[in-house]
Design a protein around this nucleic acid. Structure first.
Lengths: 199, 199
DNA sequence: CGAGTGATTGACTTAGATCAATGACCGTGG
DNA sequence: CCACGGTCATTGATCTAAGTCAATCACTCG
């Protein structure tokens, strides 16, 4: 559901790729919005940085996903996009895209769908941030990200990234995971967490 | 920009009003999504409640605004809608709306715009929640909600509501505001806060 | 092999949650 | 017309979970 199938050939043709090193910035808040991006390979984090240097992760886009959709409605970007690893992104130029939107109702439909999904995802994120307890926050993440069996969660990146994602300090995340494992609530192996007990 | 002008007559005709007492629930998470709502008068809070009973405020819709847009793309609602005061809401039925979307490109355009605004608003909210310090969180809110002069903020509701909105305990909000006022950073009078110093 | 990053654990501090009590205000029903 | 119940605003006292600083180890990538 997050693939870029919905992008029509006309827009595809106008796309250009760009290679990013890990940590490289694709755009910054305030830059002129040139279009919408898709991740070909790698991973991009959309963040806003406050004056204390704290990063708020708004979204993490992995291969096959798109980001900066809302930029079509704005002259500038409103957050920073940073490659989390070596990454290739594909730029779908704003002008072409908007032109095609006017012409292609299917695309419009698909695009609205994407925006609506975005709204829902952001709401879930917001809901999670409202949970004070680190443990409950992690539980929230785990249950909503479990695979088909409802108990296996494969971590999308490093724990460090996850910590930023959850809005916890690394240490709090490590410690809480350790405690949850000690209590038999979860079991860890490599990049995977299994939920052993539902609390 | 948040009025309901963009809703075409065809959809308007199918709308029905409903009167709500303060605190009354309009719909709950999991209820079948019947459509999108507009607030005629009063105020509606969209919240998600976690198992500890904590409420996460996802949106507060005041007179003239719409809410539950994303429900058009979903069979059920994903949050609770509760009237914050005596309120009249107008239901625009899903079926009619979707039918009209297919027919009316203008509506589609306007609706996409609304969704995009939603995404941006949610991102701002998320950004705010990422700020740890109560004082900085309040500052963030104040600067982004100042009127034309950039210094006057008229509070949308009670401080209690604001606290929930900011994700702070009431006490933390009261205390921090008191301290900010004592420091001469803000000045309060009735439902208005003036920013005296920018820090 | 050395530098950089991620993971982990310890020790300490603190901001904000929580519990509690009080006063102001407001609408309402007797 | 006023007493009463309710909500909002406010302040005090206390507690604790999470942030912060710091040190260590494992690993990987030039």
């Amino acid at each position: 559901m997050n693939s870029t199938d919905w992008i029509p050939p006309a827009v595809r043709k106008a796309a250009t790729d760009r290679r990013l090193r890990a940590g490289e910035t694709l755009f910054r808040s305030g830059d002129r919005a040139t279009g919408l991006y898709g991740v070909v390979s790698g991973k991009v984090r959309l963040v806003r940085v406050d004056r204390n240097g704290h990063e708020a992760v708004l979204q993490t886009a992995i291969a096959g996903e798109t980001f900066a959709e809302a930029s079509l409605f704005s002259l500038t970007y409103h957050c920073d996009a940073v490659a989390a690893s070596r990454t290739v992104v594909r730029l779908y130029p704003k002008r072409t895209f908007i032109g095609e939107l006017k012409r292609d109702p299917k695309l419009t439909q698909a695009f609205m769908q994407r925006l609506a999904e975005h709204v829902m995802a952001l709401r879930t994120r917001l809901e999670r941030r409202n949970i004070r307890s680190a443990r409950d926050r992690i539980r929230h993440f785990l249950t909503l990200n479990a695979g088909a069996d409802g108990r296996t969660v494969s971590l999308p990146g490093t724990l460090r990234e996850l910590a930023a994602d959850l809005g916890l300090s690394e240490e709090a995340l490590y410690r809480t995971l350790a405690r949850m494992a000690a209590d038999g609530e979860i079991r860890r192996s490599g990049g995977t967490i299994r939920i052993e007990k539902n609390v």
